[in-house]
Every structure is written in C-alpha cells, then in structure tokens.
Design a protein around this nucleic acid. Structure first.
Lengths: 248, 248
DNA sequence: CGTCGGCTTGATTGTGCTCAACCCGGGTGG
DNA sequence: CCACCCGGGTTGAGCACAATCAAGCCGACG
C-alpha cells in the first residue's frame, strides 16, 4: 500500500482531496460525519481488476487517487473501454446488484468505499447526496455520448488527437490554465489501453502518434511524456468544431 | 396533430400509457396531481427537430408516443446518433440550460412537457421523482456504454444484427414474450437513421440487410417490415455472448 | 406521366486491420 | 558483469472491409 493511501486511511473527510468534487460535495457537517464513519479506503495495484463484469458487488465508492478504466470484453477478446474513472468519479451502481462492466486499475488506485446497502439507505434520505449523484451521472452520460461520436465517426488520426487534447486539457486544468502554448503532460495509459479506449488497434495508435510526431504537432520524450508546441494545431486534427471545443 | 395526441390532450395522468414507466412512475396521488397540472402535450411531425444542440431549453418531459433521436453533427456533416428515445424516456437535462445534442423526431412524436424551472423545484422536493430519474439516467448510461462497444468494436454485419435484435426484443416485450421463433416487427428508422445510429454509411446498412435476407436470416416485406424465422440464428450474428445476451 | 425520395446495387478506392519482424529498456539469473 | 529474456512499443507488407462515387430501381404523389 502506498504512502498516500496510508495517509488517507488516517484522515477524515474534512481533509479529503476530493471533498468538494465527489458524491459528498454538497453534504453538510452532519451527513459528512455519517459518511466518515461508513467509509473505508482501499488501494489497488496497477493492472489489478477491482470489479469483474457480472460479479455481485457489495460496495460503491469514489476514486480518490489514480485512474481506473471501465471496460467490456467480447467472447473473442475484442475489448472496448467505456469510461475512464478519474479522482472524484463514482464507482458502482446503487439499485443494481451485479456489475455490468469490468473496472480495472490503470494506475495505482485508491478508492473510498461504502457498503452498498447502508449507502443506498442514506441515498434515499439525503437530497444533497442524491442530487449530487444525479448531476454526476448526467455528466457521465454526456461524456459517454460525446465519446460515441468519436467511436462511430472519427478517423484514427482524429481519435488520437482528440484523446491527446482531452488529456492535455485535464492536466492544464490542474495547472491553472497556463498559456495555451507549450502544453506538456504524461500519458496515463499504455498504447494498448489507448487503443481499447479509442476503438482501434494498438498498431494504429502507435502509427498515428508517430505521424503526429513526424509532422511536429507533438514531441515525445520517452514513450509517455508529450509536449504540444502549438495547441491550436493539435486541436485542428481532432475534427471538432474549433470554437465549440473550447467550452467542452 | 394526430388523433392520438388529441385524445391525450384531454386525458389525465391516471390513464397515461406511460404512467408506470416514466419519470412519474413512483409518484403517489398528491405528486401526480401536481404534475398533472404542470404538464402539457405537444406533438411533432416526423423529421422535425424538437431541440437544436446549443439551444437554450426551457422544458423537460417524457416521450409518450413515437421515437425521437438524440444526435450530434460534425462541421463536415458526419452525424452520429447518441441515443434513441422511446415512449417513457426522459427528454432534457435538469440543471443545464443548454442542450448538448439535437433531438429529432424519427416518427410522429408526442411529448408530455413540463416547464423546466418548476420541474426542477419539484425534483428537489420529491424523492419519488428524483430517485426514479436517477434510476432512469443510470439505465441510459449503461445503454450508452453498451452502444460504445458496438460502435468501437463490432463489424458492420454485427452492428446490423445487434440493432435488429434490440428492435425485435423491444417489440416482443410489448407483445408479452411470444415464442422465440417467428418474431415480426417494423423498423422505426430509415436506412439513413440506422446508419447514423450504427456509425456506418447508409449503403453499408442496405448491403448488410440484403445479405441477411439473402441468407434467410431475416425476411422482408416492403422496406420496413421484418420477420425473423429463427431468432437464435440472428443472435449468432450479433457477436454477443450467446447466453449473457438473454438478460440484457 | 414525370419527378422525387428512399433504397438497392455495382465498381473502385482507401483506411485501418492482420500478421510479422524488429527495437529498446529494464530486470533476472548465470 | 554480461547475456538473456520479456513486455511494451515501433515499423513494414499485404489484405479486407467498409467508404466513396455512381447508376439505377421502386413506390408515392403531384
């Protein structure tokens, strides 16, 4: 277990890094105290499966640190990632006993877990929790639908550029919107994971990344660290509406 | 305006065809009375756009009859359907002012509309409405994620077979699960709409339907009426796990 | 009867998949 | 310490599936 997780295990909700973004964001002191007592932390190693599709699931929770992937696999091995769970995202489904998808830790992941039954009970009584969960679910639904456009209609190059744009923005967001030029970030996913996310093969991912590099749209140090000298140029490759894309 | 809509316009929630499936499903008498006063019906012609992406939307509501399509369009005209709204499905997004996607009537569609602000206010007070809406949203999210597998990983033939299977099951469901053999139903979508839904071209849709017909897996009367002599054979073409698929 | 929209079918092209070889860096064991 | 191996990544050659471009069919409707 990581140092981070050990620190968390001792801390209360007050000092939680996702206190104001997770499902508990709108809770007042009293509800937070309830959640504080119900919660337990658990850390998963990279590559570890947190939930198997079809399993009975006895908990729900929030991602505190790390990245987890929701994915689906066909009999013959074809796999499609259907969601990326980042810190503050909610894991599990109140009202359903069985998991519809696999949940796999892409990085080291720490979850803040609640036993399912008591959480559902609290959900029924607390408007601050249920309204926040509804809001988060609607946001995820929008994100899933955006992704459907990418999967159904974009070219391989557009898919790669879109993913890089999203990752870059997510990172830039944390660094408080630095100048739009010279964005730098690390890829949190392997080529294979990117392929599963984008609905292409890993060879195609590799080729397209090489092509973007060859054309100077991105620069690479090692396999995982990316620098974008001109962000607008990368955005041009995504196929998205150039202005509308800014808001997303 | 259709006869159906006129009949509805006069009727109360009590006799509504979607009374026990829509967002109001769990309401008691008192809440239903409130909704009854707030509601108004409106009917849209086939092909008519109900909401434009980016528009400010002043209402939410439920599909009472007909089929509406949620879709997204790129600058160059590529279009992807991101959801199919069937009777009892919810339209609109509490908590957001602007529509993220187009909503287009595929058939003649009748909506049961509520002004957005009063509905949101009621949503905040009524656990029966908010819990039902959360449940419906979670179901839609699961459906969207299933669809991502289809868009990202299935072949054209599998996509067509999957769509036919879904439509057949939906219809069979209404007709109280008749014998699995000799399923018959009408396609509620044009070839172009199917193409937009499946992330292929309309020519590909046409070719694959012709192929399935040639092989005797489906039979056609006219362009829209389908008979499936052996449902298991159609399911074999979807690429889905044969047993797991039964539950979905 | 002519037109128009939705649909089908054909010919050709091209993007991304498949199969395969190879590279590179890190960890292990002799 | 070096040789080896192994996993992740890159690159290449050939192919297949679906897109594109194009022509023609069919039924509805003016």
């Amino acid at each position: 277990m990581s140092v981070q997780a050990n620190l968390l295990a001792e801390s209360s909700c007050e000092s939680c890094p996702i206190r104001y973004r997770a499902v508990c964001a709108r809770c007042e002191e009293d509800e937070l105290a309830l959640l504080d007592q119900m919660k337990s932390y658990k850390t998963y190693a990279p590559g570890q499966t947190i939930v198997w599709a079809g399993d009975k699931v006895q908990f729900v929770g929030s991602v505190v640190t790390g990245v987890a992937a929701l994915s689906q696999t066909m009999e013959d091995g074809r796999r499609q990632m259907v969601g990326l769970l980042l810190p503050s995202d909610f894991v599990g489904r109140p009202g359903r006993d069985y998991a519809p998808f696999d949940v796999v830790a892409a990085n080291e992941v720490t979850l803040c877990k609640f036993a399912k039954a008591p959480f559902e009970e609290l959900l029924g009584r607390s408007a601050s929790i249920s309204s926040r969960l509804l809001e988060m679910t609607l946001d995820e639904l929008d994100a899933a639908r955006e992704w459907m456009l990418l999967l159904g209609r974009k070219t391989a190059r557009e898919k790669i550029a879109s993913l890089l744009t999203i990752l870059a923005r997510r990172d830039a967001h944390l660094r408080l919107a630095s100048a739009s030029s010279n964005v730098r970030f690390d890829l949190p996913l392997s080529r294979e994971a990117m392929a599963d996310y984008l609905g292409v093969t890993l060879e195609t991912v590799s080729r397209q990344i090489s092509a973007l590099k060859r054309e100077g749209i991105i620069e690479l140090e090692g396999k995982r660290h990316v620098t974008v000298p001109d962000f607008a140029r990368l955005m041009n490759e995504t196929g998205d509406d150039s202005d509308g894309g800014m808001l997303t």
